[in-house]
Nucleic acid binder design. Structure first.
Lengths: 206, 206
DNA sequence: TCGTTTCTGGACTGATGAGTCTTGTTCTCC
DNA sequence: GGAGAACAAGACTCATCAGTCCAGAAACGA
């Protein structure tokens, strides 16, 4: 294995990512990928075997990379105000989801659902499912610390998650990247969701 | 215009709908549509002009048809319990959205976003946007009747909408039609959303 | 029944794109 | 410096598909 071989491989994945994410599977050609990353078409085939295989590898890698980009919930520091913790986590999650490349990946995978249900299932597990599980863990801790009045943390996590994500994700899916909210808008979205959440589940003040 | 001509046209749209919704735009051929509806390819072209035009007409018609399938909120009958009204409307909306053909349409349009942003924008307006506006109207009435404590009915409507729709829509987008909830599950989903909503915005009892 | 319009069936064109093959070149390691 | 692997460049095969063309059959209106 030549060292330059790996570089070419990375360059190919990068070009493939850009093209697949921006125009979908069908309308991308192996020639255009080869041209963009300055590599012979044959090299693509010797590295990945087929267009489909390249696509699968790309999407899988991107899915995993995105999962890693979402931070874990912060440790619970004694009995401080629970809201800032939830607020920070939700802002981080929403900001990650609202990035153009994550949105494109989501659109791409949804469009390919019939052809590659495994990709979509993986994205579901690594994305929203995982986010909600993380959220549920934090919510359960807060409940145990007496800061929330909640029966089913998992359900509450899902509700809070979609209270935050529903509108922005739906808009971005159908209206494109111009509908991506700014940082202050993201904060406002999280804050108004938390108002509802704490009005429903909060114990003490506010 | 021959009467049989219209029938052929309808048959063509039906076959096109089935095929486009189940496998996406690119992988459908004019030959396969012609074959399925028992019509010569030339007839398709004389009716619709091109594959793209057929697709656009199909999706537009289907979008409008779906909008019409969602019932309007019922009239406010004096000062009864507000919950059954919201409950009935939300169940109807969620049930409509959770039908296989509506879900497929949504997936299809999302996958074609780069190629046809107008279609996606139209779906957004006729679908979620419209549902939320309807919901906001009802919520505003309930607020005026003293049943809810709410500043911004439109925002509250969006929150309630995604409290109900978020989880099921996301699952159906990524996990396919096997993730469609049953009727009792739909009711349970609406009920648990309404619990949160009324805990946050309700005035009196409960 | 006659003339017109519409449909059929299938052949045809032209373009495109996945995947292969060939020839020669450039690395890397020994 | 030489052997073998990985690469470049591009020609080539083969299949598919949108859209056209045409000759004949069928349906319609008057």
């Amino acid at each position: 294995m030549r060292p330059s071989s790996l570089q070419k491989r990375e360059a190919a994945l990068l070009a493939a990512e850009r093209q697949f994410l921006s125009t979908g599977y069908e309308s991308v050609t192996m020639d255009s990928i080869a041209k963009e990353c300055g590599v012979a078409k044959q090299t693509l085939y010797s590295h990945f075997g087929s267009k489909r295989a390249l696509f699968l590898e790309l999407v899988t890698a991107k899915t995993v990379a995105t999962r890693r980009a979402v931070p874990s919930p912060p440790a619970l520091d004694s009995a401080g105000d629970p809201r800032p913790l939830l607020r920070a986590l939700l802002i981080a999650q929403l900001t990650t989801v609202m990035s153009p490349s994550v949105l494109s990946l989501r659109r791409l995978v949804i469009g390919e659902l019939t052809r590659s249900p495994e990709l979509a299932a993986a994205l579901y597990e690594q994305g929203p499912r995982r986010a909600i599980v993380k959220l549920a863990e934090l919510i359960a801790e807060l409940r145990d610390a007496g800061a929330l009045r909640i029966d089913d943390p998992e359900r509450a996590a899902s509700q809070l998650n979609w209270l935050v994500m529903g509108e922005p994700v739906n808009r971005a899916m159908l209206l494109g990247d111009t509908a991506i909210p700014s940082a202050p808008e993201i904060e406002a979205q999280v804050d108004s969701a938390l108002e509802v959440f704490f009005a429903a589940f909060g114990t003490g003040g506010d």
